[in-house]
């Protein structure tokens, strides 16, 4: 199932949190070879985990992390505006309607469906909170994964070459996209909306009042 958890509430989900930060170490340090910090517990964390981000996490039936991503509002501190201004010609991306998405991570055994479910979760956030875009930094391998799950971003800028080539991309909310992403993830809209409601205590969208 999908869970939406703020940083300050991670302690309510100890197993999910532990496996998420370990899987991040596996993906970013071991598989992708990024220079990330892994603490003695085997957790990969950076300064943005300390800023009360919102995590969208896939929890497997056994209660462990299956995949996750991390959001922060671009009006506050973000990775892109702090470190990757060179990719956007120095222009900071700041809007109350754009959230930054980073650390998209899949557990080693996770399949495309989980990736798709995470994307669907991102779509629910957009729909619920009037977010129009997500912005993110990623490398070539992630670019392929995004394309595979039917959610390729628009590239704003790229730098570097080969494996080290990184890009800044923008995802725009698209209602038609939503159904396609849900479909690929093997989820019904009702399922996805129920998970959202379980986390936030509110519906994604109240029914529009008619008549």
């Amino acid at each position: 199932m999908l869970r939406y958890v703020y940083g300050s509430d991670l302690s309510d989900h100890p197993r999910l949190t532990d496996t998420m930060f370990r899987d991040r170490a596996t993906q970013f340090r071991d598989r992708l070879g990024w220079e990330v910090t892994v603490d003695p517990n085997g957790w990969e964390q950076d300064e943005y985990d300390g800023l009360d981000p919102l995590y969208v996490i896939w929890e497997t039936p056994s209660g462990r992390h299956g995949g996750s991503m991390r959001f922060l509002p671009t009006t506050g501190q973000t990775m892109i505006n702090d470190h990757f201004l060179g990719l956007t010609d120095g222009a900071a991306i700041q809007s109350p309607f754009i959230w930054e998405c980073t650390r998209f991570c899949l557990a080693p055994e996770a399949g495309g469906r989980i990736a798709g479910a995470l994307m669907a979760g991102g779509g629910e956030l957009m729909r619920a909170f009037d977010v129009t875009h997500f912005v993110g930094v990623f490398d070539q391998r992630m670019k392929r994964i995004y394309r595979m799950i039917g959610s390729a971003p628009d590239i704003l800028g790229e730098a570097g070459s080969g494996r080290d080539r990184i890009a800044v991309g923008l995802w725009e909310y698209d209602a038609a996209d939503r159904l396609r992403v849900l479909d690929r993830a093997g989820l019904t809209p009702e399922q996805s909306e129920r998970w959202f409601e379980q986390s936030f205590g509110r519906k994604v969208r109240e029914m529009a009042l008619t008549g």
Binding site: Y6, G7, S8, D9, D52, L54, L72, P73, G76, L125, A128, F129, F200, G201, R202
Partner: peptide
């Protein structure tokens, strides 16, 4: 303080 989505007080 620890969130950034619009919050209804009932929640």
């Amino acid at each position: 303080f620890q969130r950034f989505h619009p919050v209804d007080w009932r929640k």
